[in-house]
Amino acid sequence: MKKFEGLVTGLSRVLNNIAGFCMVSVMALVVVNILLRVLFKHPILGTYEYVIYTTAVMIGLTLAYCAVQNGHIAVDFVVERLPLKVQAVIDTIMNVLASSFWAACVWQTCKYAQKMTANGTVSPTTQTPIAPFIYLVAIGLLALTLVLLVKTIESLKKAFSLSDISMPAPNVGAVESIQKAVTH
């Protein structure tokens, strides 16, 4: 189990690193395109399309690591007040619901991509096939599903034993100081 957890966290982190690279690429592409357009009157025609699809991939590949860091915000002040055991049961149910929903979305997103390949849909201007980008988003959703699966197992364990095994929450940078302020 620990191994599976580590594997999932590792995978999310790798995907997130690729997403970071996408972020830098989008910025560079837009700026280079502006320079080419203003200085040399020769913009890159495909910029608009490359930017939107790279952004989509960037977001898709970050979803999982965002979940690892508990970055998908939730309202917790109600559940917080319940007994720990009840909390664990509620979390288990929510995690099962969410992970099955996203699992279904992974499968459907792949089907969507398949359909795009089959009917030959390409981007309007550069005629780049769209399907590969959709598959990459599906990979991101798959990783998200796996993270939620780990969380399901965790909350299930808690519900039965209340033993504390939790996914290591990595440091969240900018906000450390604020967190400290809130805790004291």
Partner: peptide, 13 residues
Amino acid sequence: LLDATRTTAMIML
């Protein structure tokens, strides 16, 4: 980058 991707993914989802 880490903070920006996390925040963006959260917002966009």
